[in-house]
Design a protein around this nucleic acid. Structure first.
Lengths: 166, 166
DNA sequence: CAGGTTATGTTATTTCATAACGCAAGAGAT
DNA sequence: ATCTCTTGCGTTATGAAATAACATAACCTG
């Protein structure tokens, strides 16, 4: 998806096997604690996000949904994504119309990504929004969520784009 | 658009008359300096953005395009928006699928908005991205653009939501 | 088990954006 | 001036992303 280069897109290798099961189990237990229900469609979409090597488009998820090859109906996946976002298990990347599993522990009301315009990977990082928050509150705003999306080149693609020079 | 409340949406009053003409003229002269062409469709879309009271959806622009009521064809408006974004005269707000004229002078490769989820206004502010930039560069990224979208309640809607408390 | 609430299944539609192609207009070289 | 290269426009059609609406099913709680 959106791959402009020939890199093997391995910057964010997907989970498999035990690691995948463990990540899903962690989400499940977190749900139990908060009396939320990790129902089959929600679990399935979370699995697909965790297995993926990079951001997944909604219709990629729809196509990949059925283990037998049967696609899901769009609302099935969009509802699951709403749930996963609400619980902080996934983030939507607005500038890509795509979704990633949350790679950070902790609070879910902020997310920041470094998006490579060459290979399409999106790396989540822990932002320090304090200056922006302060500015917003100073202006009288009550901030609920903040998202930051920085676009550019990841280390690998950057090297390739500048073969020799500075 | 996206208005959940009954406020007269006047947080970002649109330009008219002389102010509008002056803003368009400023853009035109900036284009001349850089050998860019502010062609009729581009000028028209810029006018519509400047006249608007808040973020405009692409299809709102399409519908409003013709002074005689004739809508534009989608590519006409999307191309104009691409141009205006490239020159820094407009910004796309990803989380709204909407567009606003740039309210800040200067560089165009970063934009930050305070978006009111109640009345739909989007206020541009000057961000201090230095911590995020530093984090990104430390991770080896070459950042090209940064966008930040903070969602919450503007001062007016905040008061209304908390009639008494705190 | 009655009754409210939350989640799903399904059909259809709406909203957002771009591909592809031919034509027109401007800029620079000779 | 006019060639021609590039850039932008007009047009048709299609693709991609997301949601509306409504019926059914599952869960919880008293």
């Amino acid at each position: 998806m959106g791959v402009d280069c020939h890199h093997t897109e391995s910057a964010q290798p997907g989970l498999e096997g035990a690691a995948l099961a463990s990540a899903v189990a962690a989400a499940a237990s977190k749900c139990e604690r908060t009396r939320e229900r990790l129902t089959p469609p929600r679990r399935r979409v979370l699995e697909l996000l965790l297995e993926a090597d990079g951001p997944m488009k909604a219709y990629d998820l729809i196509a990949a949904y059925g283990q037998d090859g049967e696609p899901a109906k769009p609302p099935t996946v969009y509802r699951a994504l709403d749930f996963l976002e609400r619980l902080g298990f996934a983030h939507r990347i607005e500038s890509l119309n795509a979704y990633v599993p949350c790679r950070m522990e902790g609070t879910s009301h902020r997310a920041a990504f470094l998006i490579c315009e060459c290979c399409g990977t999106a790396e989540e990082f822990e932002p320090d929004f304090s200056p922006q928050f302060a500015a917003a509150e100073a202006a009288g705003y009550a901030v609920r969520t903040v998202t930051l999306e920085a676009r550019g080149l990841c280390p690998a693609c950057k090297v390739e784009a500048e073969p020799i020079a500075t």
